[in-house]
C-alpha cells in the first residue's frame, strides 16, 4: 500500500450569497482509498483543527444514487470514464499531484455550500411528465404484453441514468438534454409509455427551458462525461419527436 501526498485546490463557498474561492490543502492518502474517502481524511483533519469541513454530497458510494457531484481537474466525476466520483479510486492519481475540485457549475444548479449544489430542477423536469400515468391497482398481468428483448434492453440502457447532472456540468451551454432525453427514451421505447410519448416530450422540454438550462449545440461533452454512458442518440430521438409533435400535430402543451 503506497502512501501519497497530494495538494488539493478545493472550491470553498459558505453559501449562495458568498462569491467563493479556491483554498489549498495538503492531504496524505493511499491508493486503495476512494476519492471520497480521501476527502473524508481531509475533513477529519480540518475538524481536528476546529475548522469547517468541506461540504460535498454523497450517499450510496456505489455509483448508483447520483448524489456525488464534483468537477475534478476540470472533468465532472474526474478522469476515469464511466465512473462516478465515489467509485473513482486514488490509484488513478500519483503522489505529488495537485487536484482541483469544484462544484457543478450551471445556472439551474445554484451552489448551496462548497461542492453542494441544488439539483431540484431535475425533479421538476420529471414532474412535468417523466412518468407513465397508471394508478396503483390498474395494471394487467406483467406478461400480458411481451416486449422484444432488444427493445427492453435499449429502454433499460436509457433508464440507467442516475440523475447526477454531470451532463449539465460538462456542457458549455449547461443543457439538460441528455438527462431529459434519457427519461424520454426509457419510457417512450416501451409500449406502456408510448401512448403519452409526444405529450411527455413537449412538457419535459418546456420545463427544461423554464429551469434555465441551455440549448444543445451537439458538442457531445455530455456523453463523454456521463458516468452511466448514456448515449447521445437519445437526444436525437427526442428531437425527432419534439419536432414532429410541435410542428406536425395540433396537440401541443
Amino acid at each position: 500500500m503506497s502512501d501519497m501526498n497530494l495538494t488539493l485546490k478545493v472550491w470553498r463557498q459558505k453559501n449562495n450569497n458568498d462569491s467563493g474561492r479556491f483554498e489549498s490543502y495538503q492531504v496524505a492518502a493511499n491508493e486503495h482509498m476512494s476519492f471520497l474517502e480521501m476527502l473524508d481524511v481531509l475533513n477529519q483533519t480540518l475538524i481536528e483543527k476546529k475548522e469547517e469541513p468541506v461540504a460535498f454530497e454523497h450517499d450510496c458510494r456505489e455509483g448508483i444514487c447520483g448524489a456525488c457531484s464534483m468537477v475534478i481537474n476540470g472533468r465532472p466525476h474526474g478522469p476515469q470514464g464511466g465512473t462516478t466520483t465515489c467509485q473513482l479510486h486514488m490509484r488513478h492519481f500519483k503522489s505529488g499531484d495537485t487536484i482541483t475540485i469544484e462544484p457543478w457549475r450551471a445556472k439551474a444548479f445554484p451552489v448551496i455550500k462548497d461542492l453542494v449544489v441544488d439539483r431540484s430542477s431535475f425533479d421538476r423536469i420529471i414532474q412535468a411528465g417523466g412518468y407513465i400515468s397508471v394508478n396503483t391497482g390498474q395494471a394487467q398481468d406483467g406478461n400480458a404484453i411481451p416486449i422484444e428483448k432488444d427493445l427492453a434492453l435499449q429502454a433499460f440502457d436509457a433508464a440507467t441514468c442516475i440523475g447526477c447532472g454531470a451532463c449539465v456540468a460538462a456542457c458549455p451551454n449547461a443543457s439538460a438534454m441528455l438527462f431529459t432525453s434519457a427519461k424520454v427514451s426509457h419510457l417512450g421505447l416501451l409500449p406502456q409509455g408510448e401512448v403519452e410519448h409526444s405529450k411527455r416530450v413537449q412538457s419535459m422540454v418546456k420545463q427544461m427551458d423554464e429551469e434555465g438550462f441551455g440549448m444543445c449545440s451537439n458538442t457531445g461533452a455530455c456523453e463523454v462525461e456521463c458516468p452511466k454512458e448514456i448515449s447521445i442518440t437519445n437526444i436525437a430521438r427526442m428531437n425527432r419527436t419534439y419536432m414532429g409533435s410541435v410542428f406536425g400535430s395540433d396537440k401541443t402543451v
Partner: peptide
C-alpha cells in the same frame, strides 16, 4: 404478484427472455 404487474405498467424494465416475457 400485484407488485410485478404494477411495476411493469409503470415502465420498470425488468429482464426479459428472447420471447419477450419476463
Amino acid at each position: 404478484r400485484n407488485i410485478i404487474d404494477q411495476c411493469v405498467a409503470q415502465g420498470v424494465p425488468f429482464a426479459r427472455e428472447y420471447g419477450g416475457l419476463l
